[in-house]
Each structure stands twice: as structure tokens, then as C-alpha cells.
Design a binder for these strands. Structure first.
Lengths: 203, 203
DNA sequence: CTCGCATGTAAGTAATTGCTTACTATCTTA
DNA sequence: TAAGATAGTAAGCAATTACTTACATGCGAG
């Protein structure tokens, strides 16, 4: 009982494919995402996928671009929500964790691409993403240190690594628990510990 | 020009296979490790692999066991090197990072297994590993809090998550950089930031 | 109204996967 | 020294991979 065949524009299908990949990555390893599974997830045949992307690599690249736009967009929006550096950091942290909770496949995709050997276009894109992420992080941290709300002896590079690691730790914890339940609450506490690690001011 | 055929005990080959997997994981994604590549890495034919392991799953399990023994062994040894909780934590941190530097494939294997769906014997083993890791971490943190060297308002669960995340962040940074160069130095600094985040005492 | 093209399907392709098979070489030991 | 066990090889298995091809069809422009 095949369902009625639906015709959509290629642009529409491209976006749909990207979303399907992100959704599938939430439940299985990116390495196990085949074009057949993608097609199955959107009620298409496997061959139809190649009407909208020339190659599977192109799909991964489109996914990477979507992650870049969405995550960096959320981060930037969060950083603009306040003028106080520490509040900016907290908003960014919250936004990043919120993104990971909303799209649990995204961090997996990033990690999966990074550990691929060699240099692909996808990997370069992901590196660029993380580079500009780290860049805004460093900028805020440096500004905070100049204002004295972050202790001047803190190495901002190390602080940025710990900031990113804190989120990684939360993601890992959620993979252990088998779900994203309670992650946002833990995030609050973990960020608190991080914050008192870099705080200067009243000491 | 095939090299002279070498005969080794099955026990010897099993250990060799585990080491080959760990070494291969340092250079490529665990998903790309095939039995043929394993065999190639140790100058054997692919079929010979199955003389020493009944199935590929059994290989992954043996690898997980090796990681558990080696990592937990190093961690325990480090934690016994001192009686002072904060020094214990630092020794554990150093030992863990050292392990990741010596065997860069190990964290990838752990992450790869964790994001596999369902419940396999391998995944259960990895969960057990991380569980007892976190257990000793919590024990030390609680002891430190009772002695007052860790601020009493610190949530030890969150602190443990941040501790593990800090290492994850360092691993991620090294994957970005494309190598493990300089990680141990960064580790020192990152741990310093973490430490001042949980430190109580002289405030 | 109709015709061309974009979007779909179904059935291929070669390559690669984990694993098995039939057979051979080496070592131990009675 | 003959026999059995162990560890190796090469070839081939069915299943799965990304990707291609041949053919069907519905929508919009002329």
C-alpha cells in the first residue's frame, strides 16, 4: 500500500534531507546513516536522494553548514542579550546546551567529522565553525579580564578549552544516561563551577 | 614476495589484535576499522583474525576490557600517589591525559561505543568503566569537601562532570590541532582553572 | 491543450563488509 | 616417526554500501 507519491521542489527536499540526517544522528552513530535510511525517514526511495544532492559528501557538507548557521546564530544572539561579560558567557552556555538538547545529533556529527582522517571540505567547515566559536569566546573572556570580572591571572585559552569541555562533559553524561533529561539543570550547576573558576573581583 | 609465515599463540595474537585496533583508532574513525585493516596492520590475512576471535564484536569487547584495565589502573595508581585530595585529583587528571596522549584511539573508541544505539555487551562494559571512574572521582571530591579544601557549596556531581569534560575538551582541541602536541602543557593550565573553581579554604 | 522538464520509482552496478570454507604448514607428543 | 592439534592461507559467501540508469509522471509555461 504505497502512499501517494508527493512531488516537492529540490530546495525543499534538500532542507528535508538535512533535517532527516540531524534527526537520525540523534538515535544512531553518524557512520550508520546510509542514504537508504535517510530516504526511508522521509518516505522516499533511495535513488531519489541523488536527485537533490550529487553525492553523499555533499549531504554532509550541507548538514555542516546548517549546524554552523544555527549554532553560531544562537550563540551570537545569546551573547547580545547582555552587556555584562559573565552574563554573556552564561547565555552562550545556555544557548549551546539548549542547542545540543534540541538537536542531540549535532554534537555527534561534529565529533564524528573531526575524527575523520585527512582533510575534507566538511572537516574544514567544522574546523571553521569551532574556530569562530572559540574566537568569540576568547573575545568575551579577554574583555571580562580587562574589566576585572575575570581574574587577571586566568589564561583565557585554557578557560575557553574548559568552557567547551564543560559542554562536552554534559553531552557525554547524557549519552551515558541514555537521554537528555535533566541536562539543562546540570548545565546550570556545571557552569556555576566553571564560573567560580575564572571569577576575579570580590576576592 | 610474501614474507615468511609466522606462527604465534592465539593468546599472543589476541593481544596483538587489541593493540592494532587501538593504534588504528588513533588515525581513523573506529567505524572504519575493518577486520581486513586489522589483519593488514599485523601482516596477516583477514580470515586469520577469526582464528583468534569468534566475532568482530568479541574484538571490540576485548579492546574495551584492555582500556578498562589500563586506564583504571593508571588512575588508581595516580590516586594513591598522595594523601592530599587536591593532589590526588591533579595526579588523576595528569594520568588520564597521559593515557589519552599515549593512546589517542582510546577516547575515540569510548565515544564511538557510547553513541551506539541499544545495549551491547561492549557498551555495558564502557558504562561500567566510566561509572567506577566517576565513583572514585566523587569519593575524592566528597572527602576533600569534608576537609574543607573544596568549598562546601560545590556540588560534587557537577564538579565531576566538569572534570571529565575538561579532559574531553583537551581531546577535542587536539583533534582540531591534528595532533597531541602541547596537550599535556595545556592540561596543566586547564586543570588549574578547574581547581580554582572548586577550591575552598583561603577565601 | 500540450509538451518539456523536474521529480519520482525500480532495478540495476561495482566495491566492500563480516564471516565461512577447503586446504596447507608447523609444532607437539606418544 | 606417525598422528593430532594449532595457526596459517586463498577463495568465495550473502548482505550492504554509494551511486547509476531506464523509465514513469505531474506541473507550469507557451
Amino acid at each position: 500500500m504505497e502512499t501517494a507519491r508527493v512531488r516537492r521542489s529540490s530546495e525543499f527536499r534538500q532542507a528535508e534531507i538535512v533535517q532527516a540526517v540531524v534527526a537520525l544522528a540523534a538515535e544512531c552513530s553518524p557512520a550508520d546513516i546510509t542514504t537508504a535510511r535517510i530516504a526511508g525517514a522521509m518516505a522516499l526511495t533511495q535513488g531519489a536522494i541523488f536527485r537533490h544532492f550529487p553525492t553523499k559528501e555533499a549531504i554532509w557538507l550541507a548538514v555542516a553548514e546548517w549546524i554552523e548557521e544555527t549554532l553560531l546564530g544562537a550563540i551570537e544572539e545569546a551573547s547580545l542579550s547582555s552587556g555584562a561579560p559573565l552574563e554573556q558567557l552564561q547565555a552562550m552556555f545556555r544557548a549551546h546546551v539548549g542547542f545540543a538538547v534540541a538537536y542531540p545529533g549535532a554534537p555527534r556529527l561534529i565529533f564524528h567529522e573531526l575524527q575523520q582522517p585527512g582533510d575534507s571540505a566538511v572537516k574544514r567547515r567544522i574546523r571553521g565553525l569551532l574556530g569562530s566559536y572559540r574566537g568569540t569566546l576568547l573575545q568575551i573572556l579577554k574583555g571580562a579580564r580587562e574589566r576585572g570580572v575575570v581574574a587577571h591571572e586566568v589564561d583565557v585559552e585554557h578557560a575557553a578549552t574548559l568552557f567547551i569541555g564543560a559542554i562536552q562533559g554534559l553531552v557525554m553524561q547524557s549519552m551515558l544516561a541514555g537521554g537528555m533529561r535533566g541536562v539543562e539543570e546540570s548545565a546550570q550547576g556545571v557552569f556555576g563551577v566553571f564560573l567560580s573558576g575564572i571569577a576575579g573581583g570580590q576576592r
